[in-house]
Amino acid sequence: MTAGPVRIAVDAMGGDYAPGEVVAGVVAAVREGGLQVGLVGDPEVVGAELSRHDAGGLPIMVVPSDGVIEEGEQAALALRRKPRASILVATGLVKKGMADGCVTMGSTGAAMAAAAVILGLLEGIDRPALGGPVIGLAPRTAVIDVGTNLDCRPAQLLNFAVLGSVFASLFWDIEVPRVALLSVGGEVGKGNRQVREASELFERTLPNFIGNIEANELPMGKTDVAVADGFVGNIVMKLTEGLGAGIAELVAERLKGRLPDDQVDELAREIYEVNNLVEVHGGGPLLGVRGISVVGHGRGKADAVRRAIGTARRSFEGDLAGTQAAQLQKIREAAPESA
């Protein structure tokens, strides 16, 4: 790592509110100090947004790109068709050593593909993984994976456990994070074949494995890392977000006229935010890649962008990629048959 400010490349064109909210978030993050940011995007458009802020003298530069990979585009095809797209240029700056990490609020698939192709994957990793806290009542419980790997072998779930443990140690200062498998029952032998075989592998390999956990136990903080394939993890995350939005709307409707409007709005917003952590807190790092790439929520606004940049900074300063590689190597040595 180099001395001096941490250098972050930010995809200015990615996300529902780009580039306006992205630029605003970058300015706020840089004003906190210790950062240099390259805003990657259409120079004319990004420059116009930057001029709306009193950003003179701030260490922000505009890095030209051409095109955006949108949500819904086939990532592998888009990477070939749009080689100068903003997410590719931002990720490329990390690969070239011109940035210490990159951040996007745009397409998760594009960010994953760019990280895998440009940065490369750690040994033993098939695809990047994405995970972190998704339930506000348990803000120190990371669920991994939350949608990037839908069909997983037990060995992949073991990798998720290692990657999630490194995440929990770095971001929450937990020396030995507790790891659990998300299943339909807490008893040994419960679950489908995938979970049963993974449980046996975890028992042999992970001293911090505490067994299975059911979804209703996630809000209680009974584990630091809850491991699931991306199909299950994404359902948990989306259900939590939907319940938060629905309950917030119901509470606002029922309390209207019974409490002052500002109190109703505050309570509804708190319920929504507690159940939409990814949107509120910015996003999380792609795990299992040889570098720092943080993917934020597409609906995230300026404060979420600022937080996502802070996550990238923390990931770089804590050597997230190097620590993951070291821990994966230990697992391969302890259980070579799972590699």
Rank of each mutant, 00 (worst) to 15 (best):
P5H: 12
G15Y: 03
E21T: 02
V23W: 09
V23M: 12
A28Q: 13
R31L: 13
R31A: 14
E32Q: 14
G33M: 09
P43K: 15
P43V: 14
V46R: 10
A48K: 12
H53I: 02
G56Y: 13
G57S: 15
M61Q: 15
G67S: 14
G67A: 13
I69A: 09
G72Y: 12
Q74I: 12
Q74V: 11
A75F: 07
L79F: 15
T91W: 11
T91G: 08
G92K: 07
K95C: 06
K96S: 01
G97P: 04
A99F: 10
V103G: 03
M105V: 00
A110T: 02
A115V: 05
I118W: 00
I125C: 04
D126Q: 03
D126S: 05
G131F: 09
G132M: 07
A138Q: 02
T141Y: 05
A142F: 09
V146I: 15
T148Y: 04
L150T: 03
L150E: 02
D151H: 13
R153W: 07
L163E: 04
V166D: 04
A168G: 00
D173N: 06
V176R: 14
V176F: 09
G189N: 07
N192A: 07
N192P: 02
R193K: 13
Q194W: 01
E197N: 01
S199W: 08
T205N: 03
L218P: 00
L218D: 02
M220W: 10
K222E: 03
A226N: 00
V227D: 04
D229Q: 06
V236N: 00
V236A: 03
G242N: 08
G244K: 04
A245T: 02
A248P: 00
E249P: 05
L255T: 07
K256L: 06
G257V: 07
Q263L: 09
V264A: 11
L267G: 08
A268I: 07
I271F: 05
V280G: 01
G288T: 03
R290Q: 14
R290W: 12
G291N: 08
S293K: 10
V295C: 01
G296W: 11
G296H: 12
R299Y: 03
G300I: 00
D303C: 09
R306C: 08
I309V: 14
A312L: 08
F316I: 01
E317P: 02
D319V: 10
A321W: 08
A321R: 11
G322A: 10
L328Y: 04
K330F: 06
K330L: 07
I331S: 01
R332D: 01
A339M: 06
A339D: 01
